[in-house]
Design a protein around this nucleic acid. Structure first.
Length: 538
DNA sequence: CGCAATTTTA
């Protein structure tokens, strides 16, 4: 039995490793895990490379429990995890909001004599910032700088970003100067960060200050020239472009949104088949349904579904692939993404679309980021037809959807009053090898909660915790609000306690939510008292 | 294996 499995038709270890690697790269981590099981039954022994690839794949897709399990298995089989394996795990733990576990993993790394690298420290600093531990992050940065090691351009970039977030622009500029003096290149990521920081805090006029701080290279001048050219092009009369063709035609058949929410189709079929504007089922006639329920669309949509192959939908695990900041080929789209973000942040949708159009015409290749930005803005404004049009175009341009795309779809469905379709969309996501991260859980909990589907909310919350992701401040705020509004005041209070016990620091949104909860509790006490006619104690 | 521009709460 064992021998026959090892004969020539059976894959060898390196074939298994390559296969697992590729599956992880294309986001099919579930399949990678299946191959992994197969490998273990094949008579081969996994090696350090197998373990590293799998742990990376699991961490990237928020399968932290799985990653931790494989990590233990690796050690039990006599392989010592190296720096890269530890780095992957620490990063994954931070991103799953498991701050304590991440720090413990770092301590363990040191304990076991595994050498921490600059990457390790960057992961630590970034992770601490992202988990509301700014003080610790700054301290670590200063310590490292004092020792004069484990600091590089990325470290500076992380700190500059944080300073921009805190509106400490002067400090950010100083740090950039220091960064350059120490011989680190101020790359496009850092420059974008600074530009966005300046713009957000209405300090465009500081670009000349920036010019003075960055003396090296011609990257900043190129960026500024790009901006000037772009503005000139946008001002110039758009010659033969006035044909009123919509930028993102949704074609009426919604083929792509449908293929995304394919498994929802059967539900929609039954639900909305006889849906005529005006003669609607009570439960869906209430508010936001108009765009969605225009039934000819629905019918075509449903029919189209039956004839479409949904298995080929592209999905990217590397969430909106980071475009490398070097290489002229990506420079244009990097700039487009940055400026789209600036325009959209100010609600300048028209300008954003124009920018997108101009650069589509020049043949610059939009990436998931680009589409997701515009998609999100359309959804936020309630332009659902245009939004689904963006999705179609993503499909046509063979641009993969990622978890942010799905997030926006769920948001959109929620706004349209169709949170009931969320679980079907999730099925589709999972079938594509997708995964849920903290933001996705938060979005889902919010959408379902607003639709008063509290049982589903609680189920998701449970699932979130059991799948190795810690709830964050947004999760708790949303949960408390949803339970308060549903009149489940005790549960809301329990959640508040859970939040504090978990060491999750409340923010200003928590305050607002607790105000509401407090009033509801007051109200219910008053009602109780007036009904029962006896007092309850404080 | 790490940093920007997309996705979450009032």
């Amino acid at each position: 039995m064992k021998d026959s499995k090892l004969d020539s038709v059976c894959p060898d270890l390196s074939t298994y490793n390559s296969l697992i690697h590729v599956l992880c790269l294309v986001g099919k981590v579930n399949d990678a895990l299946i191959v992994w099981e197969e490998l273990k039954c094949s008579g081969h022994e996994p090696d350090a490379i197998t373990y590293r690839i799998l742990i990376q794949g699991c961490c990237k897709s928020y399968r932290l429990d799985e990653a931790t399990k494989i990590f233990s298995e690796m050690e039990n089989n006599g392989y010592n995890p190296d720096t890269i394996v530890y780095n992957s795990l620490i990063d994954g733990l931070f991103k799953a909001r498991k701050v304590n576990e991440a720090c413990q993993m770092f301590e363990r790394m040191v304990q076991f004599g595994v050498r921490a690298s600059t990457w390790t420290y960057n992961i630590l600093i970034d992770g601490l910032f992202r988990n509301a531990r700014a003080e610790a992050a700054y301290t670590l940065f200063c310590d490292l700088k004092k020792k004069g090691q484990f600091v590089d351009g990325v470290t500076y970039s992380i700190i500059v970003l944080q300073l921009c977030r805190e509106a400490l622009l002067e400090e950010a500029l100083e740090l950039v100067e220091e960064m350059e003096m120490r011989g680190f290149t101020v790359d496009l990521v850092t420059i974008s960060t600074l530009m966005i920081g300046l713009y957000k805090h209405s300090r465009w006029d500081w670009t000349d200050k920036l010019m003075k701080r960055i003396r090296d290279g011609n990257l900043l001048p190129s960026v500024l020239k790009w901006k000037v050219d772009m503005e000139a092009t946008m001002k110039a009369p758009q010659s033969n472009k006035k044909d009123h063709t919509p930028l993102f035609p949704s074609k009426g058949d919604f083929s792509d949104i449908l293929s995304l929410i394919s498994s929802a189709a059967s539900i929609m079929d039954g639900d909305l088949e006889s849906d005529d504007v005006g003669v609607k089922d009570d439960k869906i006639s209430s508010t936001h349904i108009d765009q969605w329920s225009s039934s000819p669309h629905m019918d075509r949509l449903a029919n189209h579904f039956k004839s479409t192959d949904h298995s080929s939908q592209l999905f990217s695990l590397s969430r909106g692939q980071r475009v490398q900041a070097k290489g002229e080929s990506s420079f244009d789209i990097d700039m487009v993404n940055t400026f789209l973000s600036l325009f959209l942040a100010k609600g300048k949708l028209t300008l954003a679309c124009k920018l997108f159009e101009i650069f589509s015409d020049t043949g610059a290749n939009p990436v998931s980021y680009t589409y997701n930005s515009i998609l999100s803005s359309f959804v936020k404004k309630g332009y659902f037809n245009e939004a689904w049009g963006v999705l179609s175009e993503m499909g046509e341009k063979v641009c993969p959807t990622d978890i942010a795309t799905y997030n926006v779809i769920i948001q959109g469905l929620g706004k349209m009053g169709r949170a009931d379709l969320a679980s079907s969309v999730l099925d589709k996501l999972m079938k594509q090898g997708g995964y849920l991260d903290v933001v996705m859980y938060n979005t889902l909990i919010n959408a379902l909660g607003k639709a008063n589907r509290i049982d589903e909310v609680n189920k998701l919350f449970k699932q979130m915790k059991s799948s190795g992701i810690n709830p964050d401040v947004v999760t708790f705020n949303t949960l408390i609000e949803v339970h308060s509004k549903a009149g489940r005041l005790k549960d809301a209070y329990k959640l508040l306690k859970m939040m504090l016990d978990a060491g999750c620091t409340p923010n200003h949104v928590t305050d607002t939510t607790l105000d509401f909860l407090g009033k509801e509790i007051e109200k219910s006490r008053y009602q109780k008292a007036s009904i029962v006619r006896n007092k309850d104690d404080p």
